[in-house]
């Protein structure tokens, strides 16, 4: 089962390497990982989606806490969060298919961010299921390249 954990870390060199190597040596699988600065520039947030059983996820959290640069860890409740992922999809188009692709993109409220002679670059944000659905719809036209940021998430309400 997938769990989303949100980890606040000190923004120092080598911290990401320490975290990712911990996952591999303890045998935990990372589905996705997104990292960036927070409102405080001394602190970064790493959002990690891990595939693990309940006992496994407890160990992940406990082991992460042992890293000196880790300040706070939250396991996010999937029912009470807003989660997003940003994806760029370069899809192959020609004069015949372009209109169809545009229509699909509109239905998904995605954006066209670049146009090439034989391609369109589509940007979409949303939940993983929405993104996956768009990807499926575009696949028959030929996906030339696909880039995902990995999932980020925030709990609902005022509490941080």
């Amino acid at each position: 089962m997938n769990h989303i954990i949100s980890v606040l870390v000190e923004n120092k060199a080598g911290v990401l390497a320490k975290i990712s190597s911990l996952f591999s040596r303890r045998g935990f699988n990372i589905e996705s990982l997104a990292v960036g600065p927070t409102e405080n520039d001394e602190i970064s947030r790493i959002t990690i989606v891990v595939n693990a059983e309940k006992h496994g996820i407890e160990q992940v959290v406990k082991q992460l806490y042992k890293l000196i640069n880790v300040i706070k860890i939250q396991e996010l409740d999937p029912l009470n969060i807003v989660e997003r992922e940003l994806v760029l999809i370069k899809v192959s188009t020609d004069s015949k298919t372009r209109a169809e692709v545009l229509e699909i993109v509109n239905i998904f409220r995605a954006n066209i961010v670049d146009v090439g002679k034989k391609s369109l670059l589509v940007e979409i944000t949303g939940t993983r299921s929405k993104v996956n659905a768009l990807e499926e719809m575009l696949r028959p036209y030929g996906i030339l390249e696909l880039v995902r940021t990995g999932k980020i998430a925030c709990s609902r309400g005022s509490k941080s």
Partner: peptide, 16 residues
């Protein structure tokens, strides 16, 4: 050496 010893130290530092 900080990379190499990362899994076998409680913590390590490269003093820049």
């Amino acid at each position: 050496i900080t990379g190499i010893t990362s899994p076998i130290t409680k913590h390590n530092y490269l003093v820049k």
